[in-house]
Design a binder for these strands. Structure first.
Length: 284
DNA sequence: ATCCCCACCTGGCCGC
DNA sequence: TGCGGCCAGGTGGGGA
């Protein structure tokens, strides 16, 4: 479900209410998520305070007062909702509620119909935690720039979209934002990653365009509260509205939004995922 | 190493 | 109204 902008929005929503709250009680549903819970999950987090909530790639990280970190990934359909304890009417349990954390003033619930998400626990430094330490550049960091990406892409024989979605290279992009950024940068989905790098390992113009547009689009989407499709809403139930600005994603058969272009948006399958693009604007 | 493909799930929608 | 088929913001792990 969520890509970086949605996870960032959710993380901010969690921060606003939950920092400083003590965990009083934890309930887990019978069904396991993608991975089983730590066998000491409840005991390890009970009576601890949430001292920070941060994001890395598409992970939300809850730092606890005992040095443990809850590592949460939302998969395709995970969501959090926060209920103020004073508002009793929202307390009913919903289908697919898997983790219910009772805090001093709030109840926070992780819901995930498809159960591709997971909630793990570690007391190691995250730099030693294997699901976190391999992650690549944060798109909004200054290390994510065309020169650095050129160094990674120059020998990559895989298609460009696939490389952009590889969390080991760039952390946080998913199918929507990659399709949209490639459209804005006018990059063909049929190019290989190495096609965007010149002989001297310098980024070609299209790679610079791509990097610039990824940064722009991620910022725009965060500012709009992410994209609401199907299950995603913010922690307070509000919708994001970046989906209203999609140029290609989900627009198969519709006319390209560019001025002076009358091509129809196409959908092809790459690495088992849909790629949406304009065959007129994205040919090179 | 590098790249690709599958499995893991539930549910919504569309066509018959 | 029902049923089958297709589709969905992801990714770890294993095979080629």
């Amino acid at each position: 479900m969520p890509e970086l902008p949605e996870v960032e929005t959710i993380k901010e929503g969690l921060r606003n209410s939950l920092i400083g709250q003590k965990i009083l009680k934890v309930n887990l549903s019978k069904k396991k998520l993608r991975f089983p819970y730590d066998k000491d999950f409840k005991r390890s987090i009970s009576n601890k305070k949430i001292i920070d909530i941060t994001r890395r790639a598409k992970y939300i990280l809850f730092s606890l007062s005992n040095g443990f970190t809850i590592i949460s990934h939302l998969g395709m359909s995970g969501s959090y909702r926060i209920i103020e304890k004073s508002e009793k009417r929202d307390l009913k349990r919903l289908k697919h509620d898997h983790v219910i954390i009772n805090l001093e003033d709030f109840i926070v619930i992780y819901n995930d119909p498809r159960r591709f998400g997971y909630i793990l626990l570690t007391n190691k430094p995250l730099s030693e935690y294997k699901l976190i330490n391999y992650l690549g550049f944060e798109p909004l960091s200054k290390d994510f720039n065309a020169e650095n990406i050129a160094k990674v892409f120059h020998n990559k024989d895989r298609n460009i979209k696939n490389a952009l979605m590889d969390q080991k290279i760039i952390a946080g992009l998913g199918n929507i934002y990659v399709c949209e950024a490639m459209f804005r940068a006018k990059v063909s989905p049929f190019l290989l990653a190495k096609d965007l790098v010149s002989e001297n390992l310098k980024p070609k113009r299209h790679l610079k365009e791509l990097v610039d547009n990824i940064k722009i689009i991620i910022r725009e989407a965060i500012n709009m509260g992410g994209s609401s499709l199907r299950d995603y809403t913010q922690t307070d139930g509000r919708m994001g509205y970046f989906q209203n600005t999609f140029d290609v994603y989900g627009r198969e058969g519709k006319i390209c939004s560019s001025k002076n272009c009358s091509h129809l948006i196409m959908r092809i399958i790459q690495s088992n995922r849909s790629t949406f693009f304009c065959p007129g604007c994205q040919k090179n």
